[in-house]
């Protein structure tokens, strides 16, 4: 039995009267790719923000490395739980400026040779190193964004709809990149996607979030055996309740 990379115990998050995450419990298996699917506004991105403490949960516990995330210094936690966002935000400057950012935040620098290694790792040629980040295509930006997060050597990678704004070719390239990380380095990956087929293709396990509740968690292979009506409606193309 694999150790959980993350455990959720009755986690909720509310903003005023709005209950965005409702009593979520469950475990994320280390070394697996876990997909998070569900309709828009189901609370998937909020759950990711709770994990790396960009937002604070209202109640419950999230356990990482056998410790509540509340006991971590947020800066330390965010390095260990890296996040890649849909919009692939770049800081002004070159690709190299973006890659060295995590090290600079620690008062160090990223040597050029190491930067080239990170570029190769995400399938980009080293000639891009001195290209202005704003001149890159969407897919290239997303690769740089992944490489930048990898510089921190995170134990868990959170991917928030990273292929949703990309064309099919770029999306496939990112998918195979992530799959190879998972296979080669046993990297634990949590992946939010709107695309059920993508979840089926890539993930070992799937969580279905609908209206802030987790209504299915289990092997992706068993997803279509789910008994919950809302999950079945969603899988059949509905929008949930």
């Amino acid at each position: 039995m694999k150790q959980p990379a993350l455990s959720f115990i009755d986690v909720s998050f509310s903003k005023g009267d709005l209950h965005i995450i409702k009593n979520i419990s469950g475990e994320i298996t280390a070394g697996n790719i876990t997909a998070f699917i569900g309709p828009s506004g189901a609370g998937k991105s909020t759950l990711f923000r709770l994990i790396n403490q960009l937002t604070t949960k209202t109640t419950g516990e999230i356990i990482f490395n056998s410790q509540s995330i509340d006991t971590f210094n947020p800066m330390t936690l965010r390095k260990k739980v890296g996040v890649v966002l849909q919009e692939a935000v770049m800081i002004p400057g070159t690709v190299y400026d973006n890659l060295r950012l995590p090290r600079q935040l620690e008062g160090r620098d990223l040597p050029l040779t190491e930067a080239k290694d990170f570029l190769r790792k995400v399938g980009l040629e080293e000639k891009f190193l001195h290209t202005k980040a704003k001149e890159l295509s969407g897919g290239q930006k997303q690769k740089v964004s992944i490489a930048r997060t990898l510089v921190n050597e995170p134990e868990i990678l959170l991917m928030d709809e990273i292929t949703s704004s990309l064309d099919q070719v770029s999306a496939q390239a990112i998918e195979s990149l992530i799959t190879s990380f998972n296979h080669d380095e046993r990297q634990t990956i949590l992946w939010i996607t709107h695309n059920i087929d993508q979840a089926k293709r890539l993930s070992d396990e799937t969580w279905v979030l609908i209206d802030g509740e987790c209504l299915y968690q289990g092997p992706t292979a068993d997803l279509y055996n789910a008994t919950d009506k809302h999950v079945r409606d969603f899988l059949e193309g509905g929008d949930g309740p």
């Binding site: 790396n52 960009l54 947020p74 800066m75 330390t76 965010r78 390095k79 890296g82 996040v83 966002l85 935000v89 800081i91 950012l101 995590p102 935040l105 620690e106 930048r148 997060t149 921190n152």
Partner: peptide, 8 residues
Amino acid sequence: LILSLGGS
């Protein structure tokens, strides 16, 4: 982004 990368 900087916060998420572990910046202060």
